[in-house]
């Protein structure tokens, strides 16, 4: 049977990991490819790079990072952050990314998701959504790393993205991101039940139990987390063992 995926996410800025695993035996702890290798060895199901490089001039550095990682890690890699054009997507795929996640540009350029899904296949187009709760049972889409409100209803937006050919939704709760209080389970469940494409839950993981909740209660197909893995609190194996002990299907 298909297993639920556990996806560690690394923030990369100018080719360096911003927050990452703090292991003493790392030759270069700031090297994304080195960190990727550790997650690969731990049996992570996929890997996610979020490029937070601010300036456009340095955008090509991420391609080099992806290339280096793909040379060493024979596992699925999703790359997002600053993806605006078909050419951006093509470059990332050619560098070795398997999936590309589109966030702000999916809102601002209404044809980008459609065109890229037609060109490269739905399977490699992930739409990353930053949603914030605005009132009971209502969430709104935010862009620019969660700073800019759009007034767009999250549920309507995910349905539209599915219709346009998105292959997957990476759903981040802005309310929970960085809080360690767990995923916004209402949001996750609502989106997961609404669309017939896989949903990756993101934002707020502080414990292994949160991962279980994201899958069991939130009905997510995959769970993404950053800090609980980076700081060596838990390894990917710890997470899998925990989920397995709770009856959640994972690849051990």
């Amino acid at each position: 049977m298909l297993k639920n995926r556990i996806i560690p996410c690394l923030d990369v800025k100018n080719g360096r990991v911003v927050k990452g695993i703090n292991f003493v035996d790392l030759v270069d702890a700031g090297d994304p490819a080195e960190q990727a290798k550790i997650y690969d060895e731990q049996g992570a199901d996929e890997l996610c790079f979020l490029d937070i490089t601010a300036s456009n001039e340095n955008r090509d550095i991420i391609l080099d990072t992806v290339k280096k990682t793909a040379e060493k890690c024979f596992m699925p890699l999703t790359v997002g952050g600053g993806v605006r054009t078909l050419e951006d997507i093509r470059s990332l795929l050619l560098a070795g990314a398997d999936k590309v996640s589109i966030n702000t540009a999916a809102v601002n350029n209404k044809n980008l998701v459609k065109e890229s899904a037609e060109k490269f296949g739905s399977q490699c187009i992930v739409v990353a959504i930053d949603a914030k709760k605005v009132k009971e049972n209502k969430w709104e889409i935010f862009t620019h790393g969660g700073r800019k409100s759009t007034g767009i209803d999250a549920m309507k937006f995910v349905e539209k993205m599915e219709a346009m050919g998105a292959g997957e939704i990476l759903l981040t709760s802005m309310d929970r991101d960085g809080t360690k209080k767990g995923y916004d389970l209402d949001l996750t469940k609502k989106v997961s039940s609404l669309v017939n494409i896989p949903v990756i839950a993101s934002g707020g993981v502080g414990s292994l139990e949160h991962l279980r909740q994201g899958i069991k209660i939130g009905k997510a197909n995959a769970v993404l987390a950053a800090s609980i893995f980076h700081f060596g609190e838990f390894s990917i194996q710890d997470a899998k063992k925990y989920l397995d002990s709770k009856g959640i299907p994972v690849r051990i």
């Binding site: 049977m1 298909l2 297993k3 639920n4 995926r5 199901d45 739905s122 399977q123 292959g167 997957e168 017939n196 494409i197 896989p198 197909n221 995959a222 690849r251």
Partner: peptide, 16 residues
Amino acid sequence: NNINKKIKLPHIGWNQ
């Protein structure tokens, strides 16, 4: 066949 939307597509992930 998504069996009346019982399963999600694409089939993404690790399967035996």
